[in-house]
Each structure stands twice: as structure tokens, then as C-alpha cells.
Write a protein that binds this DNA or RNA. Sequence first.
RNA 1: GGGCAGAUGGCAGAGCGGUUGAAUGCACCGGUCUUGAAAACCGGCGACUGUAACAGGUCCCUGAGUUCGAAUCUCAGUCUGCCCGCCA
Length: 414
Amino acid sequence: MIDVKLLQNNFDETAAALMRKKVSVETIHELKTAFETLKSAKTAYENAQAKQNELSKLFGQYKKEGKNTDDLKNEVDANKAALTDLLETQRTAEEALDAIIMRVPNIPDSNVPDGADENDNIEIKKVLTPPTFSFAPKEHWELAEQNGWIDFERGVKLAKSRFSVVSGMGARLERALINFMLDFNRERGFEEVSVPALVNRRALEGTGQLPKFEEDLFKVEDEELFLIPTAEVPLTNLYQDEILSAAELPLKMTGYTSCFRKEAGSGGRDVRGMIRQHQFHKVELVAITRADQSDAVFDQMVACASDLLKALELPHRLVTLCTGDLGFGAAKTVDLEVWLPGQNTYREISSVSNTRDFQARRAKIRYKEEGKNLLAHTLNGSSLAVGRTMIAIMENFQQEDGTVRIPQVLHKYL
RNA sequence: GGGCAGAUGGCAGAGCGGUUGAAUGCACCGGUCUUGAAAACCGGCGACUGUAACAGGUCCCUGAGUUCGAAUCUCAGUCUGCCCGCCA
């Protein structure tokens, strides 16, 4: 969550930044008011508490000295009643503030371009040239079915729509990709970590999926556990509630998990094929850094994902997301979009974000530097989405007869 | 799933109604000593909030309660460990 004090100390600038992220003026004022209300409620309550503590001490002293405590007791009782009311007021104020602030997105970096949606994103650069074909390139679902790699119907039989089954060479390719990605990331200094696929509410609040996006998550019945929508959640929350030493930062991790998303609101988009599934595989990068390190680590993460695509000989481009396309917790995001000849377009295959201290404030991830406890910066990025990488390989490496060439770097994994 | 035990600072571990944010040890930081290090000795060392700085407030799993006063008593819940059962 954002630092509310910014609204108190630097209202105009903070409000303007939030409005770039489509936070309404009303919400901003509500937030400020709620914070001020809580502050004064707290002060009042704490003063009453101080008084109560004082009187209690005196009471003990009177008892010891054998003095009469009747008058004192009356005073204490009166103050106690006041205390109860004041506490109630404070709690109400606390809940009011919480309800607002937990749903307010992060403040975008000042150099993030303004924009309404993905059409206003700004291309940074293209890497590798899209291949040319002497025939009309097919879309991945055709190739997948023709080669017997993906069975869409039987995935539906087992679960429901947007689930699929991968088999044969497809399954081996999937496994090869995961291994290749993990090795590649590890060589770049990201330590491999294997984490739970189910997490509790606290973890999801820490990274920002809850409370606002509960309808996007699969929840386990009768348990306060959710299937993870990305490994970012467990990897980042690994350090929830901890105070790290400045010297051990940055912590750089990579992990492979299945990811589960309800895709509520995605309507009829990408229903065909494997672009948007309820369950998909992803290799993730997560970093926890000092405040002064996060920009450099961000660049490393973008470079890692881009170089990975390059190693796979996949043409792609890097795009800076505009304010309108930026996710809830991100201060800055660069997407990597891979070229899909069958669709004749670039499609997202990785998204690298710096959340600065937004998640750290929620998850209480801090580090100690020169005796002070400071909020860490957290970053996450895909390196890469496995299913979409398979799609990209199929479409870019397809031959006229529908067979698919396997990128050189994967040969030793197959 | 059944039974038993437990939850205190980075860790270990006292405290079981009174001024305790909490003994002690380890770890950690600074110093003395040393060519350097170790040892020894001296000093410091929880988090959050708040303040210009003090002060003040909160926190001994969570939530309710008893009391003038709770880490300490009561109740409920959560989690962890062990034993039994089941099982990859």
C-alpha cells in the first residue's frame, strides 16, 4: 500500500500521481480524511490510556500504604468507561482507513507515460527480426493439434474450459523449457526456490491480490487457502514480517510453479488455444532489494527475460506500460511481447515490475541499515511464461508441412 | 481423524497478578588488549506508533473476559511439536 503520510505532507503532488492511476478525487479525499480521523482518535485514546496507567500505579501505592481507595476507584471507573468509547472510535477509524487504503493502487513512477490502455504503451526496442514464410503461417492451436502436442478437448473433460492436456513431444518440450529457464536464471544469480502452490490470505494481501481481486482467485473450499495466481506471491512473502540485513540484499530468486487464475472478466478473449488458461506454467523471478538497488535489479530482470528469449531465437519487443495498463501494485512495468507469426502480432510473454515499497509495506519486509529499519523494494517478473513460450516456438519455428523445429539451446534438454 | 504437550525478543530460555518491554545465555555491534585474530574484559543491542526533540501509547500467538492493574488468571480460536491411525 502507499504511504498515507505522503498525502498529509505532500498532498497536491501525491493526489496528482494517484489520479494518473485513475483513483478518484473523492477516494483521495476520503483517504486523507480517514487518516486524519484515525490520528486524532488515536491521540485521544492514548491520552486516556496514559491517565489510566497513572491511576493504576497510584492505586497500588495507596493499597500498599493502607490508604482509602474509594475516591480513586471512582475516578478510575469513570476513565475506564471513557476508554471503552475511545477505543471503539479508534477501531472504527482504523477499519475505515483500511477499507480504503488496501484498495488504492501504487503510485506510478514519474517517468511512466500517461495513457488509457495498452495502445498507449511505448515500445522501447525490438529484438531479433520476425521470420518470413514462403507459406501462410498457421496459428498455434492448429500446429499443436496436428503434432499431437496439445489436447484441448480432453482438458475440458477433466476440468472445464480453459484447461488442456499436453502430451508426447509437447510435454517433453514443456519440461525442457522449464529446466532451461531455471538454469538460465540461476546462471544470472537468481537462486532456485520451490514453493507451495497454496497460500493463505495474509500472503495474498502482502503482494496485493487481496482484498481487491478475490474474484480472480481459486479458493479451496472450507480452508482459508488459495491457489497461487503466480509464484510472485509465495516467493515475495517468503520474507514477510522479516527484517533483513542490508548486506544480504539484494535477494534474487527464481521459481517454477503452476499458476491458477479464474480469468474473471476476460470474457471471450483468447478462448481458442493456449494463450489464456486457468492453469499454466510459469518460471518467475523475484527480487527483494534495498531502496537504492531496485532500479538496477529491475534492468537485470528485464535483460534476463529478454536474453532468454534471444537464446530461444524468439523475436520480441520491449514495451513500457503506460499508467492505464499498469498493474495494481506496480510503480513501473516493462512487458516483453513475443512475435506470433500465426497471429501476425506481438503478444505478452513476460511482465517485469518494480513495486518499490508498496508490497513491502503490506508484507512488512524490511531491512536494517545503520541501525534504522527501512522498507525493502520488491520486484517480480516472468522469465518466462512456459505455455506462451511453447506457442511462440510453434508459430515461429513451423515448417511448411506443419512440423516444428526445436530451438538449438533446447536440444540438450530433450 | 483421535490423544497429549506447547506458543515470550534473531535464537535458546526465565518470569505465572503489581510499575516488567520483560532475567540469563548465545548471536550481533562498538571499545580495551593484540602485529593481526581468538580468548578475556567493558559498553550497547526488540518492533510499531508518536514528537522538532523529549514525553506518551501499543505489542509476550489471536480474540473476548476477570481486575484499579494481566506476559502472568478464565473462555474461545489458530498454529506448532509428539504419539496413534491413514497415506503419496
